[in-house]
Amino acid sequence: MTHAISVAGLSRSYRGHLALDRVGFEVATGSVTGLLGRNGAGKTTLLRILAGQEFPSAGQVLVCGASPAESDRVLSRMAFIREDQEYPDIKVSHAIRAASWCYPDWNAELAQRLLADFSLPPDRAVKKLSRGMRSALGIVIGLAARAEVTLFDEPYAGLDAPARQLFYDRLLAEYAEHPRTILLSTHLIDEAAGLLERVVVLDRGRVVLDAAADDLRGGAATVSGPVLAVDDFIAGRSVWERRETGSQASAVIVGPLGDAERARARSLRLALAPLSLQQLVIHAAARPAENTLEQIGA
């Protein structure tokens, strides 16, 4: 398998603060990967380095097999849509036109369709757009570029739920028709969970989880019911969290559950609910990377 993006030993420090700490991971060509983590985890710094906008303090970054820093050849094959993108004093149509010059696989027809989908007025000045509309402009450019590697950094800040759904739909349709490598950083984990084939979770500059999304689904569950029954059921299992309220308890257990165990839970009158990706990420962020993967069995 070839890697569209490969990062090794990547660190970036700012005046004593370590924004990225020996980050390493790989993104397979033609996949959708979620870059997850809390505010300040280092997601944007990582993406800026991938896009050649920031310089690493140490380590190596390869995009399409070459270093992106100051390489027109690599950079023109990559689209980077960031939440806080600055625009000059131009109109929406100008921004679209400028983008069409810069991306070799730009699709003008798709751009026009997306502008209409997101109800973006082409003659409006970019600085007069609302936050959501400005995000939509980034999304239009990012999708119509049809770049081999597309990086989205929180691309839908300020967009309402229907518009976000539109983004997911268009992204999936585009990805199916014109496969490319997509790295999407987001806070809305459960919303985007359906799109993601792989997740990389950053916490305080470190990779704390890097796994296929399918391996994570069902990798952990919440079991709740009477205290005694819960304690009986979780005995001998990896437990991430246990809470007790009066005679009731609930615990987060990790590791695959077989049919026999599910039946046992039912007989103990325990409720079993799989942990959502978002909850899983929150728990994973609080633990060392190796433990999480080992316990989930991924």
Binding site: G52, R82, Q85, C102
Partner: peptide
């Protein structure tokens, strides 16, 4: 080299170019 610079770089233009 004001706000056109970050927009140009976002469109995949190197600093040199």
């Amino acid at each position: 080299v004001g706000r056109t610079l970050p927009f140009g770089m976002a469109l995949g233009v190197s600093r040199r170019s």
